[in-house]
């Protein structure tokens, strides 16, 4: 079992490396959360503008439905990494609550590996789709021909960030010492 064997090897340097990774993860989460909240704010303003234009100026943006889609999608996907990092994702805990500390860690490590694999698999096919859209210069069929690789690229960024966070979560399980200082200098992006 990895974390039983490895801790003695843990060196000064390794701890330092781990600190760097954890800092990277925190920065990444902050960036993602800023992107996601910006998307939600823009969504509010977009829809309010549409209502105002329609009811006061007899006019319409004509792209509200399409862009609302990109924005809500962007918000969800970008928020995946920080939300996972906070441990807020839905999961059942009835079984792991009955396990001993060590067994729980092995189980958690397995689950983390599966999650990492799944997210990378997902990201790989988003990458494939994004590249195709970019190569062919595909745009939306709407009023404003919007290049579709842009929202697809945002999705890719969100998923890769999620993979990084999951990877770091796994490392944390193997070298738990590294997580001692996670709160020090943590960037607070909410409660």
């Amino acid at each position: 079992m990895a974390f039983v064997i490895w801790p003695p090897v843990q060196s000064f340097y390794m701890e330092n490396d781990m600190a760097i990774i954890q800092r990277l993860v925190r920065h990444l989460c902050t960036i993602c959360m800023i992107g996601a909240t910006t998307a939600i704010t823009t969504l509010v303003l977009l829809i309010l503008t549409e209502i105002l234009l329609r009811s006061v100026f007899d006019s319409s943006l004509l792209v509200t439905e399409e862009f609302a889609g990109y924005l809500v999608s962007g918000a969800i996907i970008l928020a995946l990494a920080p939300t996972f990092h906070d441990g807020a994702m839905i999961r059942l805990t009835l079984l792991s609550d009955c396990l001993s500390e060590n067994h729980r860690k092995v189980l958690e490590l397995c689950m983390t590996l599966i999650a990492l694999f799944v997210v990378l698999f997902w990201a790989r096919y988003i990458l494939r789709a994004a590249l195709k859209l970019f190569d062919r210069g595909v745009t939306s069929p709407g009023v404003f021909a919007f290049p579709l690789w842009i929202p697809e690229g945002v999705t890719l960024f969100g998923l890769v960030s999620l993979a990084v966070v999951i990877f770091a979560h796994g490392l944390n399980l193997i070298w738990p010492k590294a997580s001692v200082n996670t709160n020090e200098g943590a960037i607070d992006y909410g409660d």
Binding site: R54, S60, L62
Partner: peptide, 18 residues
Amino acid sequence: DSFSASAFSDVGASPVQL
């Protein structure tokens, strides 16, 4: 679509997207 939006604003209607 974009065609219908500009066609009907040309004749004085207010095209709306919903």
